[in-house]
Simulated scan of single mutants.
Amino acid sequence: MTRVVIAAGSPTVRAGLGALLAGYPGLTVLEVTGRPAGLAELAETVEADVVLLALEAGEQLPLPLGLPPDAAGREPAVVVLGDETTEGWVQRALRAGARGALPRTGSGEQIAAAVAAAAAGLVVLPAPAYQARVRPALNAAAPAQPLTPREVEVLAMLAEGHANKAIAARLAISEHTVKTHVGSVFGKLGVSTRAEAVASGVRLGLIML
């Protein structure tokens, strides 16, 4: 069960978020507070997994957002809901220690999912921030020439520790062809060793270990 504390200056917002989260299985609201600036003190007395902080229009982020760990050594995750969800605002929230930053206009499903994801150790971003920051970085890291399906197969077998001879036997191709595929993988990923190829493949999401 994910334990949640709601912090919002508006009684209406507090009541609305409390009712919203109460309707989702796996979430329980421990406390509702109207003192966003006192989150650190609250975290010392209430053992929560997530603090859901709803900011009013024009309200500044209470910095820092990182909270002290509870008696078990677990640090509560903070998810911020705000009217301003520009890339700069999201970055400030994350740098301040938030685990997630979403618009207050998000649906109940989105807010509940963000709380559950933050409790699981994930970072939650609104789609525009992802499109502006994360996706371009992933595209920039991708190889200029994509790997073929066969090359991905070979890369996956390299990750499993197979030698060229074993890969050739499993794929029913010649060992010379395997060497050609391995060389092509190295060239496309810009690496010179099998370990580097595997690490690059994992980083790019081509294979999983």
Rank of each mutant, 00 (worst) to 15 (best):
G183Y: 05
V185N: 08
A93W: 01
Q131K: 08
S184F: 11
A116P: 06
P128G: 02
V124N: 03
L189Q: 04
A15H: 10
A199D: 15
G73F: 08
G161H: 06
P76I: 01
L94C: 00
L39A: 12
A116M: 12
L27K: 07
E109A: 13
E47F: 06
V123Y: 09
T33L: 03
R150Y: 00
V46R: 10
P25R: 12
E175M: 03
R104C: 01
T148H: 02
Q91W: 12
R92I: 00
L81V: 04
Q91K: 08
Q110P: 03
A120W: 03
A119H: 11
G9D: 13
V154N: 07
A127H: 13
N164D: 15
L94M: 10
H176F: 11
A163E: 14
M157D: 13
E41W: 13
V29S: 07
R135C: 11
Q131W: 12
R95E: 12
P76K: 04
M208S: 14
L67H: 07
S200W: 03
T177E: 13
L155E: 07
G187M: 05
L63N: 08
I6P: 04
L171K: 11
G82V: 00
A71R: 09
V29N: 07
S192R: 13
G34N: 10
A15Q: 11
P136L: 05
D70H: 07
E56F: 08
G121N: 05
A93Y: 01
A163P: 14
K188R: 15
P69L: 06
P11A: 09
G121D: 01
L27W: 09
A156Y: 05
V46D: 05
L67A: 01
L39W: 11
G9E: 15
V32D: 05
L158M: 12
G183W: 04
G121S: 09
Q145C: 08
V50H: 13
G18T: 03
E59H: 11
E87W: 09
